[in-house]
């Protein structure tokens, strides 16, 4: 197999990157952001892509992770502990959400998750004693960017490995069946509720950890930044651009998303979301498998041409 080698090479390059580019703070910062967004995107993809349950409420998990780290850091809890607690709390919260929401299917589930996003944002906004309300939380810890970088890289690598495992495992088959036809899956012995809840649990844990890194990077969090609807939208858009339900798609999507946003956001407000809306529609209409699907089709055509040199025109 070629794939593990490619994976190892990319991982090696990513590890070496901060050492070959010392002082290039900006470049490290950009790659860090891509890794962080890639992690979030791949985390969302477990529920939205593999299990086909499109969630517009994943910002809630990110926000819970970020706030947990923010609050714990204020009380001088060691950061590694805060990091793990962040992920765990988000995961526990996912169970509370999963029980009511997975009674709904398809579009109804998706709309309910908009409600979750909105509800958590409102709670964060109004629970002044804990969250500081609208003025948010400022962290007073500083973590060198290189440390942040390796934290994001480590989490991202773990998520990619987890997705690869899921894709090949019994669990992955259950999710695929849920996505394709939940009723038929049930009659074949797949407990669809458990499968979906497990997927959401893993996904929420990842987003909680990512939220922790987010807080440590920006050092300021507010309800509108982490719980905001635009964050939720970003989480949906990235995996779709790249390729739903694939391993590398969400990462590719994160690269494209970050690039477009950096270009547009600086110059034209809201034009980035307009562009993403159009891109999303175009992808759904013409290439539902995202950039990765388009690439694969392209590669297959080339391969076919290359492997049949003798195929004379009729």
């Amino acid at each position: 197999m070629r794939k593990p080698i490619v994976f190892a090479a990319i991982l090696f390059a990513a590890i070496a990157f901060p050492f070959v580019a010392p002082g290039a703070e900006y470049a490290i910062d950009v790659v860090f952001l891509i890794l962080l967004y890639g992690t979030m995107s791949a985390g969302w993809n477990i529920v939205g892509g593999f299990a086909g349950q499109v969630s517009f409420g994943h910002a809630a998990f990110l926000g819970i992770g970020a706030y947990t780290t923010g609050i714990l850091a204020q009380h001088s809890v060691p950061l590694p502990v805060a990091f793990l607690v962040s992920g765990s709390l988000a995961a526990i919260f996912s169970l509370l959400i999963g029980i009511p929401c997975f009674r709904l299917t398809g579009p109804y589930f998706s709309i309910a998750t908009i409600g979750i996003g909105e509800a958590t944002r409102l709670i964060a906004l109004n629970w002044n004693g804990l969250t500081g309300g609208a003025s948010g939380i400022t962290l007073s810890v500083t973590l060198p960017i290189v440390t942040q970088y390796f934290l994001a890289l480590g989490l991202c690598a773990v998520v990619v490995l987890a997705t690869i495992w899921i894709q090949r495992s019994r669990f992955g088959f259950a999710l695929a069946a849920v996505r394709a036809d939940p009723d038929a899956a049930e009659t074949l012995g797949v407990n669809t509720t458990i499968a979906k809840t497990q997927a959401l649990f893993v996904s929420a844990f990842i987003l909680g950890c990512a939220g922790s890194i987010y807080a440590l990077h920006y050092l300021f969090i507010s309800p509108d930044s982490v719980f905001g609807f635009s964050t939720a939208i970003a989480l949906v858009i990235m995996p779709i651009i790249g390729g739903l339900g694939t391993v590398t798609g969400p990462l590719i999507g994160a690269v494209i998303y970050t690039a477009i946003r950096e270009q547009l956001e600086a110059n034209f407000q809201n034009l980035d979301l307009l562009a993403f809306g159009l891109l999303l529609m175009a992808i759904v209409l013409y290439e539902p498998k995202g950039v990765l699907g388009a690439y694969q089709r392209f590669a297959n055509r080339k391969k076919r041409v290359a492997s049949t040199p003798a195929a004379a025109p009729r």
């Binding site: 019994r170 088959f173 259950a174 695929a176 069946a177 394709a180 036809d181 009723d183 038929a184 899956a185 074949l188 012995g189 797949v190």
Partner: peptide, 21 residues
Amino acid sequence: VRPFRTMSVLDNVTIGAFFGR
């Protein structure tokens, strides 16, 4: 009939084999 339409025939049956009795 309700096959998992986009999956391969083999994957369809693999789901039965993975779960069930």
